[in-house]
Design a protein around this nucleic acid. Sequence first.
DNA 1: TGACCTTGCAGAAACGTACCTGTCAACGGG
DNA 2: CCCGTTGACAGGTACGTTTCTGCAAGGTCA
Lengths: 362, 362
Amino acid sequence: MSRAETPRRGSRSGRAGIRDVAAAAGVSITTVSDALNGKGRLPDATRRHVREVADRLGYRPSAAARTLRTGKSGLIGLTVTTYGDEPFTFTEFAYFAEMARAATSAALARGYALVILPATSRHDVWSNVALDGTVVIDPSDQDPVVSELVRQGLPVVSDGRPAGALPVTAWVDNDHEAAVLGILDHLADAGARRIGLLTGTTTDTYTHLSTTAYLRWCERVGQDPVYEAYPAHDPCAGAVAADRLLARPDRPDAVYGLFDPNGTDLLAAARRYGLRVPDDLLLVCCSESAVYATTEPPITTLSLKPRRIGTAVVQLLIDAIEGVESDQPVEQVIPTELIVRTSSERRSPRTTVSPPRSPEEG
Amino acid sequence: MSRAETPRRGSRSGRAGIRDVAAAAGVSITTVSDALNGKGRLPDATRRHVREVADRLGYRPSAAARTLRTGKSGLIGLTVTTYGDEPFTFTEFAYFAEMARAATSAALARGYALVILPATSRHDVWSNVALDGTVVIDPSDQDPVVSELVRQGLPVVSDGRPAGALPVTAWVDNDHEAAVLGILDHLADAGARRIGLLTGTTTDTYTHLSTTAYLRWCERVGQDPVYEAYPAHDPCAGAVAADRLLARPDRPDAVYGLFDPNGTDLLAAARRYGLRVPDDLLLVCCSESAVYATTEPPITTLSLKPRRIGTAVVQLLIDAIEGVESDQPVEQVIPTELIVRTSSERRSPRTTVSPPRSPEEG
DNA sequence: TGACCTTGCAGAAACGTACCTGTCAACGGG
DNA sequence: CCCGTTGACAGGTACGTTTCTGCAAGGTCA
């Protein structure tokens, strides 16, 4: 029998298709498509009628078919680095959560959704999802996933400037050197004579830039570097490293910790050694966590502004996807924010009357 | 001209398709498909040859086409509740991050990826992504999104037992009543005479069940309830509520806080009122955060085991998607874990010599 | 009355894959 | 020699859209 004699029965596969809507509305498929997508030249009456019939049938356009036809899926990959089997690390929880939250919002506002894709994931998963582009967090030096994506012609925007010659479409980052130098100056201003650093053994850009900045600052002011490095993805190692740092014979009288849990770890270590904060030890750490506002004493933190980064990254990516000639530069530097609290407050105030508020407060 | 005379040129649209591979390998499209997907009856030589040619051409199958054809996208929605514009709330950061992490891993291991989709998101985003199923966190009473998904015949598994008659495929939850009762007994054992509760004003199941359990416990032991409720999604309100609770004339001598930041907030409030923990005030809060291990003093926490929940939810969902007749029940209760620390340790030890180590330590 | 445009819609060709249905050769048994 | 079987492939259709290209009917203008 010829196929002309076997017309599709309505809703053959359960769900109503555009054909069923067309048949029910007594118009052509084209008209339905145009009516629902606001295209074509149709009188409002037809448009309304089609919309109404579609509603009545509970018609939902097939995302797969649309993607196949248009080449756009409306999906953005969110690539996170992994340690071991787990996506994203404990250390970065607060940062990642805030960043992902902002990215999700920003993407959503422009009609995109985010797909979580660990960088080391099975290749078949990567190739099984149609992405319009990808946000990659802290890409490693020769990330094969990123190279592959770029080779496929997909836009890739990275959070953190790409190491090496990774050819990303755009990137967003903080000025980590400036942030570290600012903190060291802040601590020195507060009376620190020997500033220590709690850093990581990993080779990512953040750790590397921050450590280098510290070493350069030490050289400039003529201080011997005092630092301990530990594998940042191991939460227990951080406590041990904090302890080691304060147990050294050349114990620092101020410490900056590069990672989120360093603040509580250093505080605990200080208590063990009977050091008062900030009297005997000034403390600053890089964190997005709110707990440091209520610790005893509250701890000064550096915020990397993950919300702004997440938003900026997504905007850049979607601009690239949609071919918008953005007036934004493709390399954006987001300023950090130092939230000064008791743990780094001036050791010997020159006066007992309250000093004028610095612009950093409030 | 007839279309037979316009054969497709190789890689017309930039990327190589299955046709190009077939042409280059000198076989048919069917053979390529079978060879790459491990189906059909092909000699190994042909299979290897096709695979090699595909590799050489950098062939990547189109996820959209595959999805359209097979009806499976390999994508799972991760629906989070929203407060205001932002997906998921600050209060649930640690819980959500851990849960999402475990869910991502579990999905990945079975070849699926997660799409973050706030429940209140624009409808066009929801309908623009082809989902095989959805995980929904803490579905509200009459969640329109969930109803819609179920009506489309998609499997929906919820984290948290569904309120009302929400027809989810399966759910995973803790036994919140039992957990609260256990904590109250634990505090009473430690010498608490009047136990207070820091709870929320929202109507979600977790808050409701926990508060009810508290009230019932009070009734049973004959204690007047002492609690403060605040909008849990507002981080500042938590500190105020903690303060209010300790400022009451009928001040409790032990407090359980239902939300993650309650521990530090209560600790700070206790300091303001000169209360020593645990001597004057026993403290427990529900949290997944590691900071409570290093506060002064360390605070006893209840863990809801988000990793286990995330894993279980995804397994149930994928079983439903793939039609696996799971031997797991469709309603799973994950046990909670009370991590006992100094803040809830027995007030008047019977002896001054160090007690034997309890199995919970270490 | 043509020539020409505009309006309102229909037909049909992709998009790239998976899979059902042949087809053809080789082979073996009766 | 015939028939059934099996291995190794090719053809072609369907998945559900979007969109390009018609194509009549009606209006306008010379």
